[in-house]
Simulated scan of single mutants.
Amino acid sequence: MTAAALRVLLGAILLLLNLAGVADAAAQSSPLRLGYLDHPGSALCLVADLKGLFRAEGVQVRLVRFRDTESGLAALAAGRIDAGAFAVDETLSQIAGGKELRIIAGGGTARSADPLADLDEAATLEQESGGIVVAVAAPRRAPGKEVLVRFVTALIRAYQSLQKEPGGVGQGAVHFDPNPDYRRIERLWRFHDLQGEGRPRDFLASHVYEEIYCDALDRLMNRTGTKDGVLQKLFSEAVCVPDCCPPDTKKRNKNKGGSR
């Protein structure tokens, strides 16, 4: 086979692989129904929708507003929505109570007006408990992995957008972070004493899909290389802990700190 013929063959293979990824996302029989609250921490979801970032990533999303986390999580558990941006403390309580929910992304946390509050660990954890995380139902009812990666990619792009606003929105009264951040969630889990006697050590780890976020971040880094400072910062902080991903998902081990 000549070099020219080989290049044509490789090009055709790459095109087919790309079309397969597009087809997987387009295979949504209906839009992903995303629940959210009138809470500043839901801004990543709202910005991604308003700026067309979900569409740009090839995923259909329909927003559904809820008055509180309790009703939103009930809708998620019942299959009336596919994902929800709700309060982390109530989400963790539902997980501890046996609800099959998986956290795939972070959101926003309101900051205290008192700068000394950051020095008090208990006050900080109490504050973070009211922050937003994005969760989906158990794997058998959740959207496919490719759809979720595209969905979280849009949330990261929304975060980029907010960080580049004049004044740095992420540095104001609300701290935004698209990373589900297992380590932070585990601190909240312990703070609220949700582990319980006899519960498997890795119980919480099996309910945090950090790999979805890592794959989405890798995808964006591959697009921009090292040109985007916001992505570089996220990438430097995206260290998945051992056993952070469910046993039925692909595991990777990278030395660059992006995922495991």
Results as ranks from 00 to 15, higher is better:
N179M: 00
A138V: 02
T124S: 07
G167P: 10
D49C: 03
T153Q: 11
E126R: 14
A158P: 08
D218R: 14
K250N: 10
P247Y: 05
E210F: 01
N18W: 14
D82W: 00
A216R: 02
L162C: 08
V59N: 07
R190A: 15
A48K: 07
L148S: 05
K227I: 01
P246F: 01
A238E: 03
R201H: 12
R260C: 12
N253M: 14
L37N: 00
E237Q: 09
K164V: 06
G172R: 13
T69M: 03
T124F: 01
I132W: 06
P200K: 08
A205T: 01
P178S: 07
A77G: 00
G72T: 05
E186W: 07
P166K: 06
V64A: 03
D120W: 14
P178F: 06
G98W: 13
A205I: 07
G108Q: 03
P143S: 02
R102M: 02
V22F: 07
A135Y: 01
G196P: 13
R187P: 14
E210W: 11
G21H: 11
S30V: 10
K251W: 15
R183A: 15
D193S: 13
I212A: 03
N179W: 04
D228S: 07
F151A: 02
D49H: 12
A75P: 10
V8Q: 02
